[in-house]
Amino acid sequence: MAGRGRGRGKNVSFNVEALGFGRGEALPGPISQPPPLFPTADFKPVPFQQSEEYDYMLALKQEFLGNMRKSPFFLQASHKRKDIERYSDKYQAAAEVNGKWKPDWRRLPAELKPRVRKKTKSSIKPSVKVKSKVKLSVEDVSKTLEELEKKEVDQGDEEEEEEEEGGKKKEEGEVEEEEDEIYDEEDIEEETDYILSYFDNGEEYGNDDDDADEGPVY
């Protein structure tokens, strides 16, 4: 016990040789700087195992990753909006191999269904009401009623109002737009030169009639 921790005195309780240097030998030299961040490596890596199998699998791997990135499963960061339309968009859009993906709702919990709101995009695309996948909340219904009332008054302004609504809903984030990309079944992607108001897909037809016949809707 007496010798413990006393260092290299004359009487040490343990075998000094076990320290790695014997008595009388010099201590390892003084260290004047921190050890190098990347000391020289004694052993270099062994070269790769080359074979046709590996080459093919490499190609498969890269192809698979490439496909995954182009697939609808790959979500771009939402801020990557195109500020101006570029010529290359045409090429890149064409590269969308798998296009849209529709999840099969028979296999997924209902809560994961997106809340699709009736709105339009800012680009000149005719808005089409989404079919059975629309789950309108109460808010939406009242808004729709407002719209329909106004339609009586001014049909021409419809588009602007819808755009307004669309603007309001933009708070939800541009997420919605991407959602539409995926979940809209009948989205017409062509850019048209036609003014929207000339385009009559007949859906407003029924509404007007209703109003005319029945008066205000509750």
Partner: peptide, 12 residues
């Protein structure tokens, strides 16, 4: 495979 890249024998 591990030893065919530097990480295998890396001292740090």
């Amino acid at each position: 495979g591990l030893m065919r890249m530097p990480c295998g024998a890396c001292p740090v």
